[in-house]
């Protein structure tokens, strides 16, 4: 059927392809597989556990597929002897085991899913050896505005954080929906106008990591990238002081120019800032009725259609 040299060529091509892939990936930067903080590393462990559990089913499936295909091929003279055209299942137990095996694996996976979905819920605060901090994130067309409310500064397309310091992100958009993702530090969260979501991350190691938007937000979407600099606490403090000393204030006029669509924005630094800016941005999209509902907590729940917390609510969504 197939001659020997053809098979040799196919095997050689496969070996070459695997070798080229391994050689290429050896030098490549693969942030999801090289976590730089506890969240990303926890999420990676979930992937490994899941893969191992799936392998218990997948490996036998592949073995049976190729074994049966080879053994019972029509061109095999032995096949006629084994042929049982009416064989359907030898016993109820065998058929039952087809249900049982995947069910058992999924039962274990369900436990993993339940525990990890809670432990790694983006709203759960983290613990670190350094003091926690808050950063407010605003997705704009097509750039990221980062507000450091405690330090009184803001940046565009640039994040600097101290290592081992739990960072609590509060996120909203003054633009279409985006998704905030720093693969080296951990998973993403959606960023929406008129709503606040939260994300907790921590960098265990110093370094420069890439941040992106995962959700299409318009023409300049591909340019919504930013660098995350994780530095020592003292370096962080001197950076903050430098920003405060040298920068331009984030006035209403400056903010208005940031809201206007622009692509591939350069890094910018602002200080001082208006402390109420973030709240003002989230309130911008609320109708009068929503605002009344938000201010009167007793009626807020009826307005809360699918579990989204409305702007003023900082509590994790239930």
């Amino acid at each position: 059927m197939m001659n020997r040299s053809f098979i040799v060529a196919v095997v050689l091509a496969l070996v070459a392809a695997v070798w080229a892939t391994v050689a290429y990936l050896h030098g490549a930067n693969i942030p999801v597989l090289e976590p730089q903080g506890p969240v990303a590393s926890g999420e990676l462990s979930v992937m490994y556990i899941t893969l191992l559990l799936c392998a218990i089913i997948v490996v036998p499936v592949f073995v049976l597929l190729f074994w049966f295909a080879w053994k019972y091929r029509a061109s095999n003279p032995e096949t006629a002897k084994h042929h049982r055209p009416e064989w359907d299942h030898s016993s109820a137990w065998l058929e039952f085991s087809w249900w049982l095996a995947p069910t058992a694996i999924i039962a274990v996976l369900a436990v993993v899913a339940w525990q990890s979905a809670h432990a790694l819920d983006p709203y759960v605060p983290l613990k670190g050896s350094n003091a926690p901090m808050t950063i407010q994130v605003v997705a704009l067309d097509w750039k990221w505005l980062f507000i450091y409310p405690e330090e009184g500064i803001a940046t565009v397309n640039y994040l600097e954080i101290p290592v081992n310091s739990p960072v609590h992100f509060e996120l909203t958009a003054d633009a279409p929906m985006n998704s905030f993702w720093i693969p080296a530090l951990g998973g993403q969260i959606m960023v929406m106008p008129g709503m606040t979501t939260q994300l907790n991350l921590l960098a265990s190691n110093a370094g420069v990591f890439n941040g992106v938007s995962g959700n299409i937000s318009g023409a300049g979407f591909a340019g919504m990238t930013f660098a995350v600099h994780a530095v020592s606490e003292s370096d962080f403090e001197s950076w903050i002081n430098g920003v405060k000393a040298s920068s331009t204030p984030l006035t209403n006029a400056v903010y208005a120019s940031l809201v206007a669509p622009s692509t591939y924005n350069a890094v910018a630094i602002y200080a001082p800032i208006d402390a109420s800016l973030y709240t003002a941005i989230t309130m911008k999209y609320m109708s009068a009725a929503d605002m009344a509902a938000t201010l009167a907590p007793t009626s807020a729940s009826s307005n809360d259609m699918n579990g989204m917390n409305m702007p003023m609510g900082d509590a994790p969504m239930q």
């Binding site: 999801v32 893969l51 996976l109 990890s116 790694l120 983006p122 998704s179 993403q188």
Partner: peptide
Amino acid sequence: VLLAEPAADFQLHNS
């Protein structure tokens, strides 16, 4: 199944 694990999905979604 990887994507079905919420914790793993945070790192894989939209990618």
